[in-house]
């Protein structure tokens, strides 16, 4: 808005992108990493009655996904406030 300078807006957008990329790398790591690419290695580790890789693929990654979105919501609300870009 008018009260925000172009620089501030650019900084907001940069922080937003950085946060998004951080969270997306966690997203990639738990699903494609632990659940698919590294599954055979992780399967050697027992985790309760599961093999760890199998658990990530069929349970764990999903829990992390849910947590990621709520972290994003929380962080973005903070970011919006910091730059005065939150909705009235």
């Amino acid at each position: 808005m008018a009260s925000n300078t172009q620089n501030e807006k650019a900084a907001y957008w940069r922080e937003n992108i950085v946060l998004m990329l951080k969270l997306l790398s966690v997203w990639f790591f738990v699903s494609f990493g632990c659940g698919i690419l590294l599954v055979d290695e992780l399967n050697l580790i027992p985790f309760f009655g599961f093999k760890l890789g199998f658990w990530f693929a069929q349970q764990g990654a999903i829990y992390v996904f849910v947590a990621l979105i709520f972290v994003y919501v929380h962080q973005m609300n903070k970011l919006d406030k910091k730059y005065g870009l939150d909705e009235e």
Binding site: L24, A57, Q58, A61, I62, I69, M76
Partner: peptide, 28 residues
């Protein structure tokens, strides 16, 4: 999943992980 075993993860991950993309990259 019961017939596919581990391979059933494609549906579990695929049909939930998309929401992370949706929330972070599209919805807002």
């Amino acid at each position: 999943i019961s017939f596919m075993g581990y391979d059933g993860a494609v549906y579990l991950l695929g049909w939930t992980g998309g929401y992370v993309l949706l929330a972070l990259c599209l919805a807002p």
